[in-house]
Computed example of a mutant assay.
Amino acid sequence: QPAAPPMMMAGANAGADAPLPVEGTLPALDGATGWLNSPPLTAQQLRGKVVLVDFWTYSCINCLRAMPFVHEWERRYRDHGLVVIGVHTPEFAFERDPRNVMKAVQQLKVAYPVALDNQYTIWRAFNNRYWPAQYFVDAQGNIRGHQFGEGNYARSEQVIRRLLTEAGQRDLPPPADPAAAELQGVAAQADMGNLRSPETYLGHARAEQFASPGGQRSDAAFDYALPARLALNQWGLSGRWTVTDEAAQLQQAGGRIAFQFHARDLHLVLAPRQDGKPVRFRVWLDGKPLPATDAGSDVGADGSGVVDEHRLYQLVRQRGTVGPHRFEIEFLDAGVQAYAFTFG
């Protein structure tokens, strides 16, 4: 179940006035393992409302970049008959913990209902395959469009407005201007012209381009070494790590992860020690401490930071010319768990 490539829109590219086909009906939502911000909702209860179902998971950078637009639509149209439902379907095991999701919902200021889809029941009912994915449902319970991945925000809002108008809503507020959105930190849209590095998983189930000598050892502690040179999008480990199917876990302080990347932003999904104690880190770029001008939102001016939550960390945001660089992160404490690189 990959993150969707940007700009995959429902069969709606045929023009603003093309009819919106019926793609199916809103499935039952009773497979949720819990609900946040709302009692459980049913498809029957939602009849008469235009519904936006937004599949997301809180460590997904694509979801985080799309979320401000979903928030704006909910704010703009909730008094005109729109109901937004976030379906949180986890990618990693830590995203199944309701406490982690509750904390993320608070930090991200998600005010609308969130269904916890830990068993993928709702995901399968929609036959969904992507994060993020949005499904637009009319007041009769018919799915009339979808958006896979980031982008097409003006078009998505146009679909919402069409369905609200069909439902008899009048005096809608003017549409939002996607270009005017206040996008800070990880929510800033990707620099697609300079994005040449793909999402890369560290766990052995999906790892690619691993360049440390000898390759990965599955589920066993091993002393890894970094190659002197990495080709573009190769990565490696140094120090004693145990690589499980989902993550690499550091067994001794001083371990490093390196990645040769080409992108404006570099993010890494990380978790603290299993007992919850934080892990300190330092970031290096091309063998030197990360310049303060290129520090991501989770890194201090001296290139240091702390892993104290299970989430995505923004480690690099280049403010100048974007080119290929060797990124390294050094962990000053044992126990960190590293899951996936993403770029922007």
Rank of each mutant, 00 (worst) to 15 (best):
G141A: 10
W284C: 01
D54E: 12
E150P: 13
Y135E: 11
G320R: 11
L232E: 10
S212M: 03
L232A: 13
K49S: 12
Y153I: 14
N194H: 15
Q107Y: 01
L29G: 00
L230V: 10
R78E: 07
N100M: 01
W131N: 01
V306A: 14
N62G: 03
P198K: 13
A139P: 02
G203P: 00
G296S: 11
G305A: 15
V70R: 10
S304I: 07
G296P: 05
L183K: 08
T33G: 02
W35P: 07
P39F: 01
H146I: 01
D275V: 10
T165F: 12
M7D: 14
I160P: 00
T89L: 09
T321A: 15
F92P: 09
G15A: 03
Q184K: 12
R240Q: 06
P178N: 08
R75W: 01
A205Y: 07
L312S: 11
W73C: 09
I61R: 07
I257K: 05
V53L: 09
P178F: 07
H88D: 03
K109F: 04
G86F: 01
D302N: 13
G236E: 05
Q249W: 04
A190P: 15
P2N: 09
G193F: 04
A253C: 13
N118D: 08
R240D: 04
R75G: 12
G296V: 03
F69C: 02
A12N: 06
T121A: 14
L250C: 10
D117K: 02
Y130K: 03
